[in-house]
Design a protein around this nucleic acid. Sequence first.
DNA 1: GCTCAAACTGAACTGAACTCAGGTTGAAAT
DNA 2: ATTTCAACCTGAGTTCAGTTCAGTTTGAGC
Lengths: 208, 208
Amino acid sequence: MARARIVDPDEGPRSKRAAILEAAVEYFGEAGYENTKWSDVADRVGIGQTALYHYFESKAHCLLTIMRLELQRSHDMFAEATADLDDPVEALRAGVRAAFAVSEHEIRQMRVLQANMSLLATPRKSKREETERVAARQLVQMVERDWTNLLMRGMAKGAFPVRDAHMLGLAVLGMIVSVWRWYRPSGAIPLSEISDLIEGSVVRMVGE
Amino acid sequence: MARARIVDPDEGPRSKRAAILEAAVEYFGEAGYENTKWSDVADRVGIGQTALYHYFESKAHCLLTIMRLELQRSHDMFAEATADLDDPVEALRAGVRAAFAVSEHEIRQMRVLQANMSLLATPRKSKREETERVAARQLVQMVERDWTNLLMRGMAKGAFPVRDAHMLGLAVLGMIVSVWRWYRPSGAIPLSEISDLIEGSVVRMVGE
DNA sequence: GCTCAAACTGAACTGAACTCAGGTTGAAAT
DNA sequence: ATTTCAACCTGAGTTCAGTTCAGTTTGAGC
Protein backbone atom coordinates (compact mmCIF):
# COMPACT_ATOMS: atom_id res chain seq x y z
CA MET A 1 0.00 0.00 0.00
CA ALA A 2 0.85 3.67 -0.19
CA ARG A 3 2.16 2.78 -3.63
CA ALA A 4 0.21 5.68 -5.12
CA ARG A 5 2.42 8.43 -3.77
CA ILE A 6 2.62 11.11 -6.41
CA VAL A 7 6.09 11.98 -7.58
CA ASP A 8 6.17 15.71 -8.08
CA PRO A 9 7.51 16.62 -11.51
CA ASP A 10 11.19 17.42 -11.82
CA GLU A 11 11.41 21.15 -12.19
CA GLY A 12 13.52 22.68 -14.90
CA PRO A 13 15.85 25.55 -14.00
CA ARG A 14 13.38 28.22 -15.07
CA SER A 15 10.27 26.52 -13.74
CA LYS A 16 7.85 28.78 -11.91
CA ARG A 17 5.89 25.92 -10.34
CA ALA A 18 7.13 26.60 -6.84
CA ALA A 19 6.46 30.31 -7.20
CA ILE A 20 2.93 29.60 -8.40
CA LEU A 21 2.24 27.29 -5.48
CA GLU A 22 3.55 29.87 -3.03
CA ALA A 23 1.51 32.70 -4.53
CA ALA A 24 -1.57 30.48 -4.67
CA VAL A 25 -1.23 29.49 -1.00
CA GLU A 26 -0.99 33.14 -0.08
CA TYR A 27 -4.02 34.22 -2.11
CA PHE A 28 -6.15 31.16 -1.39
CA GLY A 29 -5.24 31.42 2.29
CA GLU A 30 -5.90 35.12 2.69
CA ALA A 31 -8.76 35.84 0.30
CA GLY A 32 -10.13 32.33 -0.13
CA TYR A 33 -10.10 30.07 -3.18
CA GLU A 34 -13.32 31.44 -4.63
CA ASN A 35 -12.38 35.04 -4.08
CA THR A 36 -9.05 34.86 -5.84
CA LYS A 37 -8.88 35.06 -9.57
CA TRP A 38 -6.59 32.60 -11.22
CA SER A 39 -5.15 35.56 -13.12
CA ASP A 40 -4.25 37.24 -9.82
CA VAL A 41 -1.86 34.38 -9.18
CA ALA A 42 -0.40 34.77 -12.65
CA ASP A 43 0.12 38.49 -12.09
CA ARG A 44 1.85 37.90 -8.77
CA VAL A 45 4.22 35.38 -10.35
CA GLY A 46 4.78 37.70 -13.29
CA ILE A 47 3.46 35.58 -16.15
CA GLY A 48 0.39 35.59 -18.37
CA GLN A 49 -2.68 33.68 -17.27
CA THR A 50 -2.27 31.07 -19.93
CA ALA A 51 1.24 30.23 -18.78
CA LEU A 52 -0.29 28.77 -15.62
CA TYR A 53 -1.64 25.94 -17.72
CA HIS A 54 1.88 24.86 -18.48
CA TYR A 55 2.19 23.87 -14.81
CA PHE A 56 -1.35 23.06 -13.70
CA GLU A 57 -4.26 21.70 -15.61
CA SER A 58 -6.66 24.05 -13.86
CA LYS A 59 -7.13 26.29 -10.85
CA ALA A 60 -8.62 23.31 -9.00
CA HIS A 61 -5.62 21.17 -9.91
CA CYS A 62 -3.38 23.73 -8.25
CA LEU A 63 -5.57 23.81 -5.15
CA LEU A 64 -5.64 20.03 -4.91
CA THR A 65 -1.85 19.96 -5.21
CA ILE A 66 -1.52 22.43 -2.35
CA MET A 67 -3.86 20.33 -0.25
CA ARG A 68 -2.00 17.12 -0.98
CA LEU A 69 1.35 18.68 -0.16
CA GLU A 70 0.02 19.96 3.15
CA LEU A 71 -1.43 16.56 4.02
CA GLN A 72 1.87 14.92 3.17
CA ARG A 73 3.64 17.38 5.44
CA SER A 74 1.18 16.83 8.28
CA HIS A 75 1.58 13.09 8.05
CA ASP A 76 5.36 13.28 7.90
CA MET A 77 5.59 15.68 10.84
CA PHE A 78 3.39 13.46 12.97
CA ALA A 79 5.42 10.38 12.13
CA GLU A 80 8.69 12.14 12.87
CA ALA A 81 7.47 13.64 16.14
CA THR A 82 6.03 10.44 17.58
CA ALA A 83 8.46 7.92 16.09
CA ASP A 84 10.63 6.96 19.03
CA LEU A 85 8.29 7.65 21.92
CA ASP A 86 7.11 4.50 23.65
CA ASP A 87 4.95 6.13 26.27
CA PRO A 88 1.53 6.67 24.65
CA VAL A 89 0.83 9.82 26.63
CA GLU A 90 4.17 11.32 25.63
CA ALA A 91 3.57 10.34 22.01
CA LEU A 92 0.11 11.92 22.14
CA ARG A 93 1.55 15.14 23.56
CA ALA A 94 4.28 15.17 20.94
CA GLY A 95 1.72 14.66 18.17
CA VAL A 96 -0.31 17.65 19.30
CA ARG A 97 2.78 19.83 19.72
CA ALA A 98 3.97 18.87 16.24
CA ALA A 99 0.60 19.88 14.81
CA PHE A 100 1.10 23.41 16.14
CA ALA A 101 4.82 23.75 15.44
CA VAL A 102 4.26 25.45 12.11
CA SER A 103 5.43 28.49 10.17
CA GLU A 104 3.10 31.22 8.98
CA HIS A 105 3.20 29.82 5.48
CA GLU A 106 2.21 26.42 6.81
CA ILE A 107 -0.63 27.97 8.80
CA ARG A 108 -1.98 29.46 5.60
CA GLN A 109 -1.60 26.10 3.90
CA MET A 110 -3.55 24.44 6.74
CA ARG A 111 -6.26 27.02 6.35
CA VAL A 112 -6.47 26.35 2.62
CA LEU A 113 -6.65 22.63 3.30
CA GLN A 114 -9.35 22.89 5.94
CA ALA A 115 -11.44 25.44 4.07
CA ASN A 116 -11.59 23.29 0.96
CA MET A 117 -11.68 19.82 2.49
CA SER A 118 -15.09 19.08 1.01
CA LEU A 119 -13.52 19.27 -2.44
CA LEU A 120 -12.05 15.83 -1.77
CA ALA A 121 -15.49 14.24 -1.51
CA THR A 122 -16.57 14.24 -5.15
CA PRO A 123 -14.68 12.89 -8.17
CA ARG A 124 -13.06 15.25 -10.65
CA LYS A 125 -13.55 15.12 -14.36
CA SER A 126 -9.96 15.51 -15.47
CA LYS A 127 -7.30 12.85 -14.89
CA ARG A 128 -4.62 14.87 -13.18
CA GLU A 129 -7.11 16.53 -10.83
CA GLU A 130 -8.58 13.17 -9.95
CA THR A 131 -5.11 11.75 -9.30
CA GLU A 132 -4.35 14.54 -6.86
CA ARG A 133 -7.74 14.20 -5.24
CA VAL A 134 -7.38 10.48 -4.68
CA ALA A 135 -3.85 10.95 -3.34
CA ALA A 136 -5.09 13.62 -0.96
CA ARG A 137 -7.94 11.41 0.21
CA GLN A 138 -5.53 8.60 0.95
CA LEU A 139 -3.36 10.97 2.93
CA VAL A 140 -6.38 12.10 4.92
CA GLN A 141 -7.00 8.49 5.82
CA MET A 142 -3.34 8.06 6.67
CA VAL A 143 -3.42 11.02 9.02
CA GLU A 144 -6.59 9.67 10.59
CA ARG A 145 -4.89 6.31 11.02
CA ASP A 146 -1.87 8.02 12.57
CA TRP A 147 -4.05 9.23 15.41
CA THR A 148 -6.23 6.15 15.59
CA ASN A 149 -3.22 3.84 15.82
CA LEU A 150 -1.65 5.96 18.51
CA LEU A 151 -4.83 5.72 20.55
CA MET A 152 -5.18 1.99 19.95
CA ARG A 153 -1.61 1.44 21.03
CA GLY A 154 -2.29 3.39 24.20
CA MET A 155 -5.47 1.45 24.90
CA ALA A 156 -3.70 -1.87 24.35
CA LYS A 157 -0.96 -0.83 26.75
CA GLY A 158 -3.53 0.17 29.34
CA ALA A 159 -2.45 3.82 29.22
CA PHE A 160 -5.88 4.92 27.97
CA PRO A 161 -9.30 3.45 28.80
CA VAL A 162 -10.69 1.41 25.95
CA ARG A 163 -13.06 3.39 23.71
CA ASP A 164 -13.84 3.49 19.99
CA ALA A 165 -10.37 4.49 18.82
CA HIS A 166 -11.46 5.52 15.36
CA MET A 167 -14.20 7.87 16.46
CA LEU A 168 -12.06 9.23 19.26
CA GLY A 169 -9.21 9.80 16.82
CA LEU A 170 -11.50 11.72 14.49
CA ALA A 171 -12.71 13.83 17.42
CA VAL A 172 -9.15 14.63 18.50
CA LEU A 173 -8.14 15.48 14.96
CA GLY A 174 -11.27 17.53 14.47
CA MET A 175 -10.53 19.59 17.53
CA ILE A 176 -6.94 20.21 16.46
CA VAL A 177 -7.65 21.27 12.90
CA SER A 178 -10.62 23.39 13.92
CA VAL A 179 -8.07 25.88 15.22
CA TRP A 180 -7.07 26.77 11.67
CA ARG A 181 -10.56 28.08 11.00
CA TRP A 182 -10.22 30.95 13.42
CA TYR A 183 -6.57 31.38 14.34
CA ARG A 184 -4.75 34.30 12.77
CA PRO A 185 -1.06 35.02 13.54
CA SER A 186 -1.99 38.67 13.97
CA GLY A 187 -4.42 37.84 16.78
CA ALA A 188 -3.91 38.38 20.48
CA ILE A 189 -3.42 34.75 21.51
CA PRO A 190 0.01 33.25 20.86
CA LEU A 191 -0.06 29.87 19.17
CA SER A 192 1.94 28.31 21.99
CA GLU A 193 -0.94 28.97 24.40
CA ILE A 194 -3.42 27.35 22.06
CA SER A 195 -1.09 24.41 21.63
CA ASP A 196 -0.81 23.96 25.40
CA LEU A 197 -4.56 24.13 25.95
CA ILE A 198 -5.30 21.66 23.17
CA GLU A 199 -2.55 19.34 24.35
CA GLY A 200 -4.04 19.25 27.84
CA SER A 201 -7.56 18.84 26.52
CA VAL A 202 -6.58 15.95 24.28
CA VAL A 203 -4.79 14.15 27.10
CA ARG A 204 -7.78 14.59 29.39
CA MET A 205 -10.37 13.48 26.86
CA VAL A 206 -8.38 10.41 25.83
CA GLY A 207 -7.24 9.50 29.32
CA GLU A 208 -9.49 9.34 32.32
CA MET B 1 -28.08 43.98 21.50
CA ALA B 2 -29.15 41.34 19.03
CA ARG B 3 -31.20 44.13 17.51
CA ALA B 4 -29.92 43.15 14.06
CA ARG B 5 -31.94 39.97 13.81
CA ILE B 6 -33.13 39.63 10.25
CA VAL B 7 -36.85 39.34 9.83
CA ASP B 8 -37.46 36.84 7.08
CA PRO B 9 -39.80 38.24 4.44
CA ASP B 10 -43.46 37.42 4.74
CA GLU B 11 -44.18 34.86 2.11
CA GLY B 12 -47.12 35.27 -0.21
CA PRO B 13 -49.41 32.32 -0.81
CA ARG B 14 -47.61 31.24 -4.00
CA SER B 15 -44.09 31.95 -2.81
CA LYS B 16 -41.51 29.30 -3.66
CA ARG B 17 -38.91 30.64 -1.22
CA ALA B 18 -39.20 27.73 1.17
CA ALA B 19 -39.07 25.24 -1.68
CA ILE B 20 -35.94 26.92 -3.06
CA LEU B 21 -34.23 26.84 0.33
CA GLU B 22 -35.08 23.18 0.76
CA ALA B 23 -33.84 22.22 -2.70
CA ALA B 24 -30.71 24.30 -2.22
CA VAL B 25 -29.90 22.65 1.11
CA GLU B 26 -30.27 19.28 -0.53
CA TYR B 27 -28.07 20.08 -3.51
CA PHE B 28 -25.48 22.13 -1.62
CA GLY B 29 -25.35 19.47 1.07
CA GLU B 30 -25.02 16.49 -1.21
CA ALA B 31 -23.03 17.78 -4.17
CA GLY B 32 -21.46 20.84 -2.61
CA TYR B 33 -22.10 24.51 -3.30
CA GLU B 34 -19.59 24.76 -6.12
CA ASN B 35 -20.73 21.58 -7.77
CA THR B 36 -24.37 22.51 -7.97
CA LYS B 37 -25.58 24.76 -10.71
CA TRP B 38 -27.97 27.46 -9.66
CA SER B 39 -30.21 26.30 -12.52
CA ASP B 40 -30.34 22.78 -11.00
CA VAL B 41 -32.11 24.31 -8.02
CA ALA B 42 -34.53 26.10 -10.35
CA ASP B 43 -35.27 22.87 -12.21
CA ARG B 44 -35.94 21.00 -8.99
CA VAL B 45 -38.37 23.67 -7.83
CA GLY B 46 -39.97 23.76 -11.24
CA ILE B 47 -39.30 27.35 -12.26
CA GLY B 48 -36.99 29.08 -14.72
CA GLN B 49 -33.53 30.12 -13.55
CA THR B 50 -34.35 33.78 -13.64
CA ALA B 51 -37.29 33.33 -11.28
CA LEU B 52 -34.77 32.53 -8.55
CA TYR B 53 -33.75 36.16 -8.57
CA HIS B 54 -37.20 37.14 -7.43
CA TYR B 55 -36.40 35.47 -4.09
CA PHE B 56 -32.62 35.71 -3.79
CA GLU B 57 -30.23 38.28 -5.10
CA SER B 58 -27.70 35.61 -6.03
CA LYS B 59 -26.65 32.03 -5.46
CA ALA B 60 -24.40 33.25 -2.65
CA HIS B 61 -27.29 35.13 -1.06
CA CYS B 62 -29.25 31.90 -0.91
CA LEU B 63 -26.29 30.07 0.62
CA LEU B 64 -25.76 32.79 3.22
CA THR B 65 -29.46 32.64 4.11
CA ILE B 66 -29.24 28.89 4.62
CA MET B 67 -26.20 29.35 6.84
CA ARG B 68 -27.85 32.07 8.90
CA LEU B 69 -30.98 30.00 9.42
CA GLU B 70 -28.92 27.03 10.56
CA LEU B 71 -26.93 29.19 12.97
CA GLN B 72 -30.14 30.63 14.34
CA ARG B 73 -31.46 27.12 14.85
CA SER B 74 -28.26 25.94 16.55
CA HIS B 75 -28.30 28.89 18.91
CA ASP B 76 -31.97 28.44 19.75
CA MET B 77 -31.62 24.70 20.34
CA PHE B 78 -28.68 25.23 22.68
CA ALA B 79 -30.55 27.87 24.64
CA GLU B 80 -33.64 25.72 24.94
CA ALA B 81 -31.71 22.60 25.95
CA THR B 82 -29.61 24.25 28.64
CA ALA B 83 -32.07 26.85 29.89
CA ASP B 84 -33.24 25.43 33.18
CA LEU B 85 -30.26 23.30 34.15
CA ASP B 86 -28.33 24.68 37.08
CA ASP B 87 -25.71 21.98 37.29
CA PRO B 88 -22.93 22.99 34.83
CA VAL B 89 -22.05 19.40 34.01
CA GLU B 90 -25.66 18.58 33.25
CA ALA B 91 -26.00 21.72 31.14
CA LEU B 92 -22.83 20.78 29.25
CA ARG B 93 -24.14 17.30 28.58
CA ALA B 94 -27.49 18.69 27.47
CA GLY B 95 -25.78 21.12 25.11
CA VAL B 96 -23.84 18.34 23.41
CA ARG B 97 -26.90 16.11 23.17
CA ALA B 98 -28.91 18.96 21.66
CA ALA B 99 -26.20 19.47 19.05
CA PHE B 100 -26.67 15.91 17.86
CA ALA B 101 -30.45 15.69 18.17
CA VAL B 102 -31.04 16.63 14.56
CA SER B 103 -33.03 15.48 11.56
CA GLU B 104 -31.44 14.44 8.27
CA HIS B 105 -32.37 17.75 6.74
CA GLU B 106 -30.67 19.55 9.59
CA ILE B 107 -27.58 17.39 9.21
CA ARG B 108 -27.34 18.47 5.60
CA GLN B 109 -27.82 22.07 6.67
CA MET B 110 -25.00 21.69 9.21
CA ARG B 111 -22.78 20.27 6.52
CA VAL B 112 -23.56 23.21 4.24
CA LEU B 113 -22.79 25.60 7.07
CA GLN B 114 -19.50 23.97 8.03
CA ALA B 115 -18.30 23.48 4.48
CA ASN B 116 -18.79 27.15 3.62
CA MET B 117 -17.91 28.78 6.92
CA SER B 118 -14.99 30.66 5.39
CA LEU B 119 -17.48 32.58 3.27
CA LEU B 120 -18.32 34.59 6.37
CA ALA B 121 -14.80 35.98 6.63
CA THR B 122 -14.80 38.45 3.73
CA PRO B 123 -17.29 41.23 3.00
CA ARG B 124 -19.77 40.88 0.16
CA LYS B 125 -20.32 43.44 -2.52
CA SER B 126 -24.10 43.49 -2.57
CA LYS B 127 -26.18 44.84 0.31
CA ARG B 128 -28.49 41.93 0.94
CA GLU B 129 -25.67 39.42 0.85
CA GLU B 130 -23.64 41.52 3.25
CA THR B 131 -26.61 41.82 5.59
CA GLU B 132 -26.96 38.05 5.71
CA ARG B 133 -23.21 37.62 6.16
CA VAL B 134 -23.03 40.03 9.07
CA ALA B 135 -26.07 38.45 10.70
CA ALA B 136 -24.49 35.01 10.31
CA ARG B 137 -21.22 36.21 11.77
CA GLN B 138 -23.03 37.60 14.78
CA LEU B 139 -24.81 34.32 15.25
CA VAL B 140 -21.47 32.49 15.10
CA GLN B 141 -20.26 34.69 17.91
CA MET B 142 -23.48 34.08 19.81
CA VAL B 143 -23.05 30.34 19.53
CA GLU B 144 -19.45 30.67 20.64
CA ARG B 145 -20.60 32.75 23.59
CA ASP B 146 -23.22 30.14 24.43
CA TRP B 147 -20.47 27.61 25.03
CA THR B 148 -18.02 30.05 26.55
CA ASN B 149 -20.58 31.34 29.04
CA LEU B 150 -21.55 27.82 30.03
CA LEU B 151 -17.91 27.02 30.73
CA MET B 152 -17.35 30.26 32.62
CA ARG B 153 -20.40 29.61 34.75
CA GLY B 154 -19.07 26.14 35.55
CA MET B 155 -15.64 27.51 36.41
CA ALA B 156 -17.11 30.20 38.66
CA LYS B 157 -19.17 27.56 40.45
CA GLY B 158 -16.11 25.39 40.93
CA ALA B 159 -17.55 22.62 38.80
CA PHE B 160 -14.73 22.94 36.22
CA PRO B 161 -11.08 23.85 36.82
CA VAL B 162 -10.34 27.40 35.70
CA ARG B 163 -8.93 27.61 32.19
CA ASP B 164 -9.23 30.02 29.27
CA ALA B 165 -12.98 29.65 28.77
CA HIS B 166 -13.02 31.23 25.32
CA MET B 167 -10.34 29.04 23.83
CA LEU B 168 -11.74 25.97 25.54
CA GLY B 169 -15.21 26.81 24.24
CA LEU B 170 -13.88 27.11 20.70
CA ALA B 171 -12.13 23.76 21.08
CA VAL B 172 -15.31 22.08 22.32
CA LEU B 173 -17.36 23.62 19.55
CA GLY B 174 -14.72 22.72 16.98
CA MET B 175 -14.79 19.10 18.05
CA ILE B 176 -18.57 18.95 17.89
CA VAL B 177 -19.01 20.52 14.49
CA SER B 178 -16.12 18.57 13.00
CA VAL B 179 -18.46 15.59 13.03
CA TRP B 180 -20.51 17.10 10.21
CA ARG B 181 -17.50 16.90 7.90
CA TRP B 182 -17.45 13.14 7.87
CA TYR B 183 -20.72 11.85 9.28
CA ARG B 184 -23.23 10.45 6.82
CA PRO B 185 -26.59 9.04 7.93
CA SER B 186 -25.97 6.10 5.60
CA GLY B 187 -22.78 5.17 7.47
CA ALA B 188 -22.30 2.29 9.87
CA ILE B 189 -22.07 4.32 13.08
CA PRO B 190 -25.37 5.53 14.56
CA LEU B 191 -25.41 9.19 15.53
CA SER B 192 -26.34 8.33 19.10
CA GLU B 193 -23.00 6.57 19.56
CA ILE B 194 -21.13 9.57 18.25
CA SER B 195 -23.14 11.82 20.50
CA ASP B 196 -22.31 9.69 23.54
CA LEU B 197 -18.60 9.60 22.76
CA ILE B 198 -18.41 13.34 22.18
CA GLU B 199 -20.46 14.05 25.28
CA GLY B 200 -18.06 12.03 27.41
CA SER B 201 -15.03 13.56 25.74
CA VAL B 202 -16.28 17.09 26.32
CA VAL B 203 -17.01 16.43 29.97
CA ARG B 204 -13.56 14.92 30.48
CA MET B 205 -11.69 17.67 28.67
CA VAL B 206 -13.54 20.42 30.48
CA GLY B 207 -13.60 18.82 33.90
CA GLU B 208 -10.79 16.99 35.58
C1' DG C 1 25.85 28.79 -32.78
C1' DC C 2 22.30 25.07 -33.06
C1' DT C 3 18.69 22.49 -31.26
C1' DC C 4 14.49 21.51 -29.08
C1' DA C 5 11.86 20.95 -25.15
C1' DA C 6 10.39 23.98 -21.79
C1' DA C 7 8.23 28.21 -21.18
C1' DC C 8 5.34 31.49 -22.70
C1' DT C 9 1.68 34.58 -25.31
C1' DG C 10 -2.67 37.08 -27.43
C1' DA C 11 -6.87 36.03 -29.20
C1' DA C 12 -10.78 33.30 -29.12
C1' DC C 13 -14.10 30.16 -26.69
C1' DT C 14 -17.24 28.34 -22.88
C1' DG C 15 -20.46 28.00 -19.50
C1' DA C 16 -22.67 29.41 -15.45
C1' DA C 17 -24.15 33.47 -12.92
C1' DC C 18 -26.63 37.24 -13.66
C1' DT C 19 -29.45 41.43 -16.04
C1' DC C 20 -33.12 43.29 -18.83
C1' DA C 21 -37.43 44.32 -20.56
C1' DG C 22 -41.15 43.05 -20.30
C1' DG C 23 -45.54 39.18 -19.75
C1' DT C 24 -48.67 36.35 -16.67
C1' DT C 25 -51.43 35.24 -12.63
C1' DG C 26 -54.44 35.19 -8.92
C1' DA C 27 -55.85 37.21 -4.22
C1' DA C 28 -58.36 40.86 -2.80
C1' DA C 29 -60.97 45.14 -3.24
C1' DT C 30 -64.80 47.09 -5.59
C1' DA D 1 -68.00 39.39 -11.70
C1' DT D 2 -64.74 42.57 -13.02
C1' DT D 3 -60.80 45.07 -12.15
C1' DT D 4 -56.44 45.82 -10.23
C1' DC D 5 -51.69 45.41 -9.18
C1' DA D 6 -48.07 43.43 -6.72
C1' DA D 7 -46.21 39.14 -6.72
C1' DC D 8 -44.45 35.98 -9.74
C1' DC D 9 -42.39 34.47 -13.83
C1' DT D 10 -39.92 34.27 -18.62
C1' DG D 11 -36.70 34.20 -22.99
C1' DA D 12 -33.17 36.69 -24.85
C1' DG D 13 -29.19 38.72 -23.96
C1' DT D 14 -24.66 40.14 -21.12
C1' DT D 15 -20.64 39.35 -18.34
C1' DC D 16 -16.66 37.46 -16.67
C1' DA D 17 -13.45 34.07 -14.93
C1' DG D 18 -11.64 29.86 -16.42
C1' DT D 19 -9.98 27.57 -20.20
C1' DT D 20 -8.35 26.26 -25.09
C1' DC D 21 -5.95 27.23 -29.36
C1' DA D 22 -2.42 28.06 -32.44
C1' DG D 23 1.34 29.27 -32.49
C1' DT D 24 6.18 32.17 -30.75
C1' DT D 25 10.16 32.89 -27.70
C1' DT D 26 13.84 31.44 -24.64
C1' DG D 27 17.88 29.47 -22.93
C1' DA D 28 20.46 25.11 -21.15
C1' DG D 29 23.12 21.65 -23.12
C1' DC D 30 25.33 19.69 -26.88
